Computed example of a mutant assay.
Amino acid sequence: MLKIAPLLLFLTLISNLTFAQKNTDKSSALTIGLIEKLASKELGEERTISIYLPEDYKKNDTTKYPVIYILDGGVNEDFIHLAGIVRFNTQPWINRFPRSIIVGIENTNRKRDFVFSVPNLDFVEKMGFKKESFPVQGSAKYIAFLEKELQPYISKKYKTTAQKTVIGESLAGLLATEILLKHRNLFNTYIIVTPSLWWGNESLLAEAPKLLKTGNNSNVQVYVGACNKEEDLTMYNDALALGEVLKQDGVNLKQVHFDYMPNEIHSTAIHQAVYNAFKLLYPKTAYQK
């Protein structure tokens, strides 16, 4: 019994300590948004959607909010850090633009979803990719998913205004550019960062002047960001060309900004670019009105 008693005493102390910890622990989960699953007929698969609602969002009041869509929008992609930029800019002491709903679309295969169909893939090898990396070009289906499924779903479930922003970088920037040129009415604000306009031997750039002459441009504003040109001169030149053609041929576009970021490389540009975009597109804060 003498040998057992110390063990019992030890177990009793551990039990009491555990009980005390359970009763004094005041930690709780930090929640910044919602995760939803949306079955897509257009894509033939289920998509994961991350959603951030403004702090004062109330289901039963009449306030409506603009929506910001992030194409590389998974929790492990750009959703969390870009949501932070939006939240910062919409705080009442800054009030750069209205508090907004953020919708992040998690990727399943961005090399399929963000590129449009081309007659051949010979050009991808000179950009350092293998042809088999792009077996299917499915941007048409993805754009249909945005237009026919995701946007109506968000508008029906949440209290939204007609103001919609899209953020896309690299291949997602290519998709955002395609939407801007061919389906302009889907968004009012386009934030396009280091877009992969080399796709299709710059065919989208070649079509841009003609495409910009169609559709209503009056409520559309565009930011184009480019990273250090020494890292990738082709992507810099393409981003610069896009900015120039938008300014020259984008008749009645509300505003266009080209932003060269020499201190950023392709992998770091997105965060700084989005911050810069909001400052350029919405230059006034609560104290500058």
Rank of each mutant, 00 (worst) to 15 (best):
I4T: 14
L7K: 08
T12K: 11
S15W: 09
S15E: 08
F19E: 07
D25C: 09
S28V: 01
I32S: 07
I35K: 13
K37I: 09
E42T: 11
I49N: 11
I49C: 11
S50A: 12
L53F: 14
P54W: 06
D56Q: 13
Y57F: 15
T62V: 12
T62F: 15
I68L: 07
L71I: 15
D78L: 05
H81V: 01
Q91G: 10
I94H: 02
S100F: 03
V103E: 04
G104Y: 10
F116K: 00
V118K: 11
N120A: 09
G128N: 04
G128T: 05
I143F: 13
K157L: 12
Y158G: 12
T160W: 10
K164Y: 07
E169S: 14
S170H: 07
A172D: 07
A176L: 02
I179Y: 14
I179A: 08
I179C: 05
K182D: 04
H183A: 11
V193E: 02
N201P: 06
E202D: 11
S203N: 15
E207A: 15
K210S: 13
L211N: 03
L211F: 10
K213R: 10
N216Q: 06
V220I: 15
E231I: 10
E231C: 03
T234N: 07
Y236M: 08
Y236K: 05
G243E: 01
G243D: 02
Q255L: 00
F258P: 04
S267K: 08
I270T: 14
H271K: 02
Q272A: 12
Q272T: 11
F278H: 00
Y282T: 00
K284I: 00
T285F: 07
A286M: 09
